[in-house]
Amino acid sequence: MADTADKVTRFSAALVEEAGTEGAREHRSARQQLEHWARVGRGVSLRTSAARRRVEAALAGTLPITELTPEESVVFDAEIDAHLEERLARTDMVTDRAAQGFSSVALDELGRMVEYRPDGSTVILE
């Protein structure tokens, strides 16, 4: 018999917050909203229709995105958004840019603009 107990899964705080907001509009808890989004995403990902193959071809760069239908473009955009969010969550742009010799400007935990220099020094910008 398969184990049907709930599994612990981590989500970003931003995603949980968005799920709470959207879930409230749909009369769902944040958890129910995340599960709903997962089921919808699974259904889209599992489709092997011609439209899905066209979106996958556009994602791979073998089909110009200008050839997608409006509905296919929505799925394409959602796939790109998800990929970017995943990539940004695991990438430290300040460190990467410093390794290339570039400074970066970002907000610190207090909301101040800070310049992060390649030598490791920082300057709070007024």
Rank of each mutant, 00 (worst) to 15 (best):
D6M: 13
V44W: 11
A51H: 07
T66V: 10
V75P: 02
R52M: 04
V94P: 00
L59W: 00
G111N: 09
P64Y: 04
V44F: 11
R10M: 08
H27V: 07
T48E: 10
E72F: 01
A106H: 11
W37E: 10
E18W: 11
L63V: 04
A89Y: 04
R10A: 11
W37C: 10
R39F: 04
G101N: 09
A58Q: 02
R52S: 06
T9H: 09
V94A: 12
Q33T: 10
Y116M: 02
T122E: 15
G20N: 04
E67G: 02
A58C: 04
E17N: 12
R54Q: 14
R42D: 12
D3I: 08
L63E: 06
P64L: 10
D81N: 08
E17M: 06
P118K: 04
I80L: 14
W37Q: 12
L125A: 07
G23V: 13
A106I: 01
V16H: 09
Q32F: 06
V94Q: 06
D3W: 03
A2R: 13
M93H: 11
S121D: 10
L88A: 08
R90K: 14
S29L: 10
G23F: 14
K7P: 00
E26P: 00
A60L: 14
G23H: 12
E67T: 11
R90H: 11
V44R: 15
A30Y: 08
H83C: 10
D3N: 13
F76R: 07
L15Y: 02
S73Y: 04
S12E: 11
L59H: 00
T69Y: 01
E109H: 09
A99P: 00
V114A: 03
S49A: 03
D3C: 07
D92M: 06
R90Q: 12
E56D: 15
H83G: 06
G101L: 11
V94T: 12
V55E: 00
E56S: 10
L125T: 07
L68H: 05
T21K: 12
L59K: 03
V114I: 11
A5E: 08
Q32C: 03
V55W: 00
A60D: 15
V55N: 01
W37F: 11
E35I: 08
V40E: 14
F76Y: 15
P70L: 15
S73L: 14
Q32V: 02
V16C: 01
D108V: 02
L68T: 07
R47Y: 09
T9G: 00
H83L: 14
P118Q: 06
E35A: 13
E26A: 15
V74N: 08
E18I: 02
R87Y: 02
R117H: 12
E56T: 05
D6S: 13
A19G: 03
H36I: 01
L59V: 08
R54G: 08
A89M: 06
A30E: 04
Q32W: 04
